[in-house]
């Protein structure tokens, strides 16, 4: 019997260890698995390397994980956005490391990690500071830079719908990094709006096949990051008391 359903986000994240590498899905708030991130904050694993396109906004979700001093290093393409308050301050004070990666290179490094490809060559970043120290190789008259793949101990992602095998479908542009992160992590944890019966997802419509998924947690009505930021929510709430 295969049943990847887990009863709670807390149970799902319980074996994330200090020092682990964690991929977190989402582009801005679209696809951000906020309930899983909050469970990881409650769990408390530290010295994490986190891979996400951004660094979160406000003081919830990924930004709250960073604010809670659980992240030693961020690997991302765009660490500042309109409401990113937490990361810039820590970065300026040398309290967090940053590996800046072009967005497509980030995606391809993750895809390669999931596909068993240790490295690849790309034109992206040739002649720029982001190619510094990397191997350059000429193919057919053009220079390419070698990039290493990325893997993770855990991926935390969000999907719209899953069955107990872990087959997934997503919602619009909230898909973004989730399918490739699911491939690149040893343990892929998925919060889904709805778990359906086997066969309810048309096999032609499956976006991420269940083989890439380890744990499913049903979160029927997930919180929306932008709404929490607008409402001035701070996670965990005790940080607000301590900080103000």
């Amino acid at each position: 019997m295969i049943d990847k359903n887990i009863s709670s986000c807390a149970t799902a994240v319980a074996d994330i260890k200090d020092g682990d590498t964690v991929m977190i899905g989402g582009f801005g708030e679209a696809g951000s698995p906020i309930e899983l991130i909050h469970a990881l904050i409650d769990h408390g694993a530290k010295d994490l390397t986190v891979i996400n396109n951004n660094t979160g906004s406000g003081r919830v979700g990924l930004a709250a994980l960073i604010e809670n001093n659980q992240v030693a290093k961020m690997i991302c393409s765009y660490p500042r956005t309109a409401n990113s308050l937490v990361f810039p301050e820590l970065y300026r004070n040398n309290k967090i490391q940053l590996e800046l990666v072009p967005q497509g290179t980030l995606a391809e490094r993750i895809r390669a990690g999931g596909a068993g490809v240790p490295a690849f060559y790309t034109k992206t970043s040739v002649g720029t500071p982001l190619a510094k120290g990397k191997e350059i190789r000429n193919f057919d008259g053009h220079d390419y830079v070698m990039e290493r793949s990325l893997k993770a101990d855990f991926a935390l992602i969000k999907a719209k719908c899953a069955d107990r095998y872990g087959n997934l479908i997503f919602n619009k542009t909230a898909r973004n990094f989730a399918p490739i992160m699911a491939m690149a992590a040893t343990n892929t944890l998925v919060q889904v709006n709805q778990v359906v019966a086997l066969g309810d997802i048309n096999p032609e419509h499956v976006v991420t096949p269940g083989i890439f998924v380890n744990r499913i947690i049903e979160v029927a009505n997930p919180q929306q990051e932008s709404q929490l930021v607008k409402d001035g929510v701070v996670y965990p709430p005790m940080n607000k008391v301590a900080g103000e």
Partner: peptide, 11 residues
């Protein structure tokens, strides 16, 4: 002192 951010521009 700037926070470097590149996004998809190089790609």
């Amino acid at each position: 002192d700037a926070i470097p951010a590149v996004g998809g521009a190089m790609d």
